[in-house]
């Protein structure tokens, strides 16, 4: 049971949602945008967040769009992860998504909810970072479009009253070779020791990570080291690991040392497969 009361709103347009948020914010109702809601319900039940009003964005048409257009794949932020997987227009995203929570939970968890949530893994963002996707954001100032690496820096960079409407991914990225691996301490569901998503774009390797630090990231400096032509794979890997942007997590899921061990081995496996293919 959720021990607190809140009001529930279900706007049908971006403008109405933004207007409601402004109004409720002025009334000190601590409004929260709500999509799948799985995390909000859990955190409210545990009294870890406060709100007196939730704004459900699932009735906003743009948030439900799922279009493979001429140039871009459009994914509405309120699409559930299983809807994205079943259509499978973005195989790397499907692959990463299938490892998040479990199938029934993914019938409720949405793309936007996973990326904008409090739980720091936010793995659905990895493919979007790797493909230089665009994020469409709505709010009191209207609608704006930002590159993924600007809109998402450790967390979604949303201003007051803003929410994620859609992501746009260029179609030419959708068919590129990819790999994604989620390594857990044990079992086949649960949080990762490390999740690696990798893409081979025009011969260059791109890689993004979750579970390694306290935020998901893509590091160009790490990619530069991995793509250097000099040095053995082992040497390039050691150079790349020097550019991990924050302390490696050291918690009950795994020690920092173990995470690095797992990261290095998994990344080596991925690169070995691709380099063998390239030299074949």
């Amino acid at each position: 049971m959720i021990p607190v009361d809140f009001d529930y709103y279900k706007p049908e347009s971006i403008e109405e949602a933004a207007r409601l948020h402004e109004q409720l914010d002025r009334q000190k109702m601590l409004p929260l945008y709500y999509s799948g809601g799985t995390e909000i319900i859990t955190l409210l039940r545990l009294d870890l967040i406060q709100t007196k009003a939730v704004i459900d964005i699932k009735a906003i048409h743009e948030c439900r769009e799922h279009i493979l257009g001429e140039d871009y794949l459009v994914l509405g932020s309120s699409l559930t992860l299983t809807q994205i997987e079943e259509r499978n227009a973005f195989p790397l995203l499907t692959s990463v998504s299938k490892e998040i929570a479990d199938h029934t939970a993914r019938n409720k968890i949405t793309l936007g909810g996973n990326i904008c949530g409090e739980i720091f893994y936010r793995e659905a963002v990895l493919p979007l970072l790797l493909t230089d996707s665009l994020f469409v954001i709505g709010g009191p100032q209207g609608v704006k479009i930002l590159p993924a690496h600007e809109a998402f820096q450790q967390t979604m960079q949303l201003g007051r009253g803003e929410f994620l409407i859609q992501t746009l991914t260029r179609k030419d990225f959708l068919g590129m070779p990819y790999m994604s691996v989620k390594i857990r301490q044990q079992w086949e569901t649960g949080y990762p020791l490390v999740t690696i998503a990798a893409l081979k774009a025009k011969g260059e390797i791109r890689a993004a990570f979750s579970g390694l630090c306290s935020f998901p990231f893509r590091s160009k400096r790490m990619e530069d080291e991995l793509n250097r032509k000099d040095g053995t794979l082992d040497v390039r890997m050691d150079r790349a690991l020097r550019h991990i942007p924050a302390p490696v997590l050291n918690d009950i899921e795994g020690s920092a040392e173990y995470r690095l061990f797992v990261l290095k081995n998994t990344l080596t496996d991925i690169l070995t497969v691709w380099e063998v293919e390239q030299n074949a």
Partner: peptide, 13 residues
């Protein structure tokens, strides 16, 4: 017809 965990869904949804 789609499985949902009813503990993480509001009734109003």
């Amino acid at each position: 017809g789609i499985p949902m965990k009813s503990c993480i869904m509001l009734a109003i949804e």
